[in-house]
C-alpha cells in the first residue's frame, strides 16, 4: 500500500517555531483527520532542547541533529532532507512557500523524483490521490492539481491555515537522530546575519499605514502619498516593486520578505494584492484599497475598496482630512 505519511518540514529560529510551521501542521492535521494519515513534524537543528516540549499537532516529532544544521545553510538542509524523507517513507511533504522552503523544493524534488506543487492554499486527499489548490500569477489565477502516485512536495502559502490548529494539549512522542549523511564539507557557508536597520520609522509600530504599490507610478507621486500620511499621522509603507526602485527604504516593505504589520488602518494605494504582499498585512484592523483594476486580488481581503484613480483621489482626500481639523 502507498505510504500515508505526511512530513511537515518545520521552520524555526532561535529556539522558536515559526507561524508557518504551525500552519503546515494544521494543514497536515486536516488531511490526517479525514483519512487517517500519520503526521511527522521534522526539525533540522543543532539543538533540539528548546523545541522538544512543544505541544505540536503531529503524531510524532523527529529532530535531526547536527552542528551544521544550526545556521540557515540551504546546502546543509538540501543534503540531509532527501535521506530523512526516504527513511520516514514520506508520501506528502509540506514545506513553507517561504525563503527557506522555496530553496529546498528543487533539490529535494530532483533527489527523490518527487512532484512539486507551489503556492498551495488547499490540500486534500481522495483515496491515493492528492489534490492541491494553488494561487499563481499574483493571486489572479487558481490552479487545481492532482498527484496520483509518488512523493508530492507541497509549498504551503503562509496564512492559509489557522496556526492555532497546529498545536494541541499534549506533547507528541519525540525522537532525536543524527544526520544520515556527513555535513562537514558543504559548498555553501553561513557567515552572519545582518539585521535591518530601523532608519526612521518602524512600520510595525505605526497605527496608520498608507501603502504605496506599483499604481503610484513615480517617485514624484509618492510625495503626495507622503503628504496624505502626514495628515493622518501615519507612515508610508510599500510593496516590493516600490522598494526595489529605491523610492523607500527596505524597512518599509510589507510582505513575505519584509515586515508583517497589523495597523488600525491600512490604506492600500495602487496595490494589486499579490499573495506575498498580502501575507504581511492581512490582519490589519481596517483595510481600504484603491485600485483602478476591479479584478485586483487586494479587493478579496480589503474591507472597503474603490476603483477611482489614486492619483486623483490622494490630493482630494488629503484636503478633506485637513478640513476635518477645523471641525
Amino acid at each position: 500500500m502507498t505510504s500515508r505519511e505526511i512530513v511537515v518540514v518545520a521552520e524555526h529560529a532561535a529556539g522558536e517555531v515559526s507561524d508557518i510551521t504551525l500552519e503546515m501542521l494544521a494543514c497536515a492535521r486536516e488531511i490526517a483527520h479525514t483519512v487517517g494519515w500519520h503526521v511527522t513534524c521534522l526539525f533540522l537543528t543543532d539543538d533540539p532542547k528548546p523545541l522538544e516540549a512543544l505541544p505540536l499537532a503531529s503524531d510524532q516529532t523527529v529532530f535531526v541533529k547536527d552542528p551544521a544544521l544550526g545556521p540557515p545553510n540551504p546546502a546543509a538542509y538540501a543534503r540531509v532532507l532527501p535521506h530523512v524523507l526516504k527513511d520516514l517513507s514520506a508520501r506528502l511533504v509540506l514545506l513553507g512557500n517561504t525563503s527557506t522552503g522555496i530553496d529546498l523544493a528543487g533539490p529535494v524534488s530532483e533527489a527523490l523524483g518527487a512532484s512539486v506543487v507551489s503556492g498551495c492554499v488547499g490540500i486534500r486527499s481522495a483515496g491515493e490521490q492528492l489534490l492541491f489548490t494553488s494561487r499563481l500569477c499574483g493571486g489572479k489565477l487558481v490552479a487545481q492539481t492532482e498527484v496520483r502516485e509518488g512523493i508530492a512536495l507541497a509549498l504551503v502559502m503562509p496564512g492559509s491555515w489557522n496556526r492555532e490548529a497546529g498545536m494541541r494539549d499534549a506533547v507528541p512522542p519525540t525522537g532525536v537522530r543524527v544526520s544520515p549523511v556527513p555535513l562537514a564539507t558543504l559548498p555553501v557557508r553561513f557567515l552572519e546575519f545582518v539585521e535591518p536597520k530601523m532608519e526612521d520609522v518602524d512600520v510595525r509600530k505605526v497605527p496608520v499605514l498608507i501603502a504605496a504599490g506599483r499604481g503610484v507610478q513615480s517617485k514624484e507621486n509618492l510625495a503626495n502619498v507622503e503628504a496624505l500620511a502626514k495628515e493622518l499621522g501615519g507612515a508610508v509603507c510599500a510593496t516590493r516593486p516600490i522598494v526595489d526602485q529605491g523610492w523607500l527604504p527596505r524597512t518599509r516593505q510589507i510582505g513575505r520578505s519584509g515586515m508583517t504589520v497589523k495597523p488600525r488602518l491600512y490604506l492600500a494605494l495602487g496595490v494589486s494584492g499579490a499573495p506575498e504582499h498580502v501575507e504581511g498585512m492581512k490582519d490589519s484592523e481596517l483595510i481600504v484599497a484603491v485600485n483602478t483594476d476591479p479584478g485586483a486580488p487586494i479587493f478579496d481581503i480589503a474591507h472597503y475598496g474603490t476603483t477611482v484613480d489614486l492619483l486623483d483621489l490622494v490630493p482630494v482626500l488629503t484636503e478633506r482630512i485637513k478640513g476635518t481639523r477645523g471641525d
Binding site: P74, T98, V188, F190, L191, F193, P196, R250, T260
Partner: peptide
C-alpha cells in the same frame, strides 16, 4: 529572510 533580515553566505 522575513522581517528584512539578511543572511550572508559564502
Amino acid at each position: 529572510y522575513p522581517g528584512g533580515r539578511l543572511a550572508v553566505l559564502e
